[in-house]
Design a protein around this nucleic acid. Structure first.
Lengths: 225, 225, 225, 225
DNA sequence: TATGAATGAGACTTCATTCAT
DNA sequence: GATGAATGAAGTCTCATTCAT
């Protein structure tokens, strides 16, 4: 009657805050391993044992830091959200002075590069995701969306605040979908897709962009009929 | 989907072609049930037994028609692809004479309505999906893409044939992503998302649209740059 | 993420009512095996796997009939309660006409014999019991107590109804304790214990026994000091 | 009122705490903690880690003093046996001059009070117990039994020495069972049970009690009758 | 052909105990 | 000595699939 005493642990955070260096490293190793395993077999099919094995740890150690499999998933999501934040801070923020088109392109390029290179990120992003993990899974996209709203506020002054959220969501999900799609095709073709995505977003945002004056009629609405 | 890895059966098609009517009905009942179960608990969490129970059959019978769980998934995907084909044939094809914008909108509306109404379709579309099922999952989107290429051929004469495939893919994945996103929000907000999606695609396709110099009224837009 | 989907099943009854003969037999085999295992290693230490093995079944079959280990325990308890009921019906009830002392003795003898012979009964009776099973464990003693109250009603007319319950409880727990104690000693000594137990209960009940007349002072109360 | 009170440091206590003493304190802390944990979750469900945590030590230290979990259990049993001995020495022995009924009652009262107040004692006493711990478990009852035999020797002169052991065992197990039973009912009802237990034992022992007219001086009580 | 009981690999998780620091 | 991270055997339970009836 051991395993059944489970109490549906909160699953929110690490079970034990790894203060010591060795522990912190081990947690990182576990997360790396989990990202790999998720990438290889998918999130549902990933087993805690496989993760522990790839992390070269015992299953017991894994459970010392994470109360259950879901917690590992959450931790990975959080880590990727953080990585993406950094990516934007270092790669996109510095060009804030350029045109908004350039900023869009830079954002996409940065994400494309990371997505291209990091299988774990691909796995997480692809996973919209089955049952258990559904709650957590758009954490990353929400993070993107928040960023995006801020950018819109700066560049799309013509856009009513209320609409900003919708536009941000549309942008983010579109980029996400395009990254996934491009990863499913060979690199050559994948790049064409990214290029098209950029074009699409440029055209989509054009009417919203702050354009001091001279837009014919310009609310961003299509002229009736 | 653990124990089934043992056999790795071909899984491609029904184990037995149901020539008899009763069999065909039973297969349909199983697929209906499976769609329901997938919708309720997700594809990985769906159990063959639950599917059989909802279909009011025995698992034994289920396995008479499908060699394994994956085959059921494939069959459902195929069935939805067929449904979508029919949907386009009946709802979109008839308005082939209207403007391409109207056709885009009609396509989206039709898909939105179906997606909105059919939980099984939502489940399948959302599932890009975990490991095992990955191979099958864009069958539906490929079907969309084929349709879309045909439409582009008719309307986007300005578009080099080579680029058509990319554009079609982009369109399809975008629509798909927007449907999923809109289903994740409350209906009110979901409709705003769909509206934005339409706007985005209109603007995206504008430059590709056949533009015999005398476009009836123009949109007031000047081609970019 | 399979095993964690557990929903704390009701655990009350068999998961599947075994209607067919083969199933019924199997359930019996499982219960027999469980009783044996419980007897050998104790209830907490008994493993479902050991039970299945001793029943010469697969663990899967075991779980087809019992949602969890606790349910097996409950089922055994219920079965023993039933057995004891039968024992009383066949062995004690027929001598209802004799003196109450003879009925007490017969009851104890019957229980002693069963307890002596059935290791599973010993295991259950001994188990007052650890944590999880506490709720269920005096099911048998409650059954005894109910019986006993009925007997008291017939024989101890002098006893206020309110007190009957207490007396019945005391009787039952005492008999139970004596059986357990006697089983812990060698048979020789064990019999002495049983004899003493009878003597004790005779003397205890004496004042309560309906004695038409001529009891020296008799309300059953100890003479005022 | 935990074990630490037991030390009653010798008058001229050294100011330098010898390491041995510190160890002893730590052992006591561990035992206190273990008793608490046993009481809270049961003996099988108690984990060494929980015990160490409650004792504010590390598991490492715990294993420095106890080779395994069973040893902790044994040590607690031994400690409770000692406590009971003290209880009798301080509470029952002083009234050795009174009637044997009063001594019985006092014994029961003392045990009832301790049992009522000390959850750890309840946990131990209830645990007759699962598998592993079975061997140790009647250490306490043996301690009772020894005491009881001595009392019988003094008061039940009519009782053949050979029978004394049996009677003592019967007494002890009965008292034990009654304590456990009373603890399982609400306090009100529990007290009725204890009262009945006293009555039962009085009547049971009556015939064994030495009843020579000339008991030394009597306590002013006149023997019944 | 249909049924559903039976199977058992394998998933997740716990916890007594060890051992490097 | 003290600490607590690490270990991994073992436990409970699930579920895809088979096969006797």
């Amino acid at each position: 009657m051991k395993a059944s005493d489970r109490e549906a642990a909160p699953a929110g955070a690490a079970r034990k805050v790894p203060t010591q260096d060795r522990s912190k490293q081990r947690v990182e190793r576990i997360l790396d391993a989990a990202a790999d395993v998720f990438a290889e077999v998918g999130i549902e099919a990933a087993t805690t044992e496989a993760i522990a094995a790839k992390a070269e740890t015992s299953i017991g150690s894994l459970y010392q830091f994470f109360p259950n499999k879901k917690a590992i998933f959450y931790a990975i999501v959080a880590r990727y959200a953080e990585r993406v934040r950094e990516l934007f801070d270092y790669e996109v923020a510095p060009i804030a002075g350029r045109t908004w088109q350039e900023q869009i392109d830079a954002s996409i390029d940065v994400l494309y590069a990371f997505h291209h290179v990091d299988a774990g990120f691909r796995a997480i992003l692809r996973n919209w995701s089955s049952g258990e993990f559904l709650e957590a899974d758009d954490a990353i996209n929400r993070e993107f969306a928040r960023r995006t709203e801020a950018l819109l506020e700066a560049h799309a002054k013509a856009l009513p605040a209320a609409k900003r959220r919708v536009v941000a969501e549309v942008l983010v999900e579109t980029v996400s979908a395009m990254l996934i799609l491009s990863a499913r095709r060979d690199p050559e073709h994948g790049k064409l897709i990214v290029a098209e995505a950029k074009a699409m977003l440029h055209r989509y945002l054009e009417p919203y962009s702050a354009r001091p004056r001279g837009r014919p009629k310009g609310t961003g609405k299509k002229p009736a009929k």
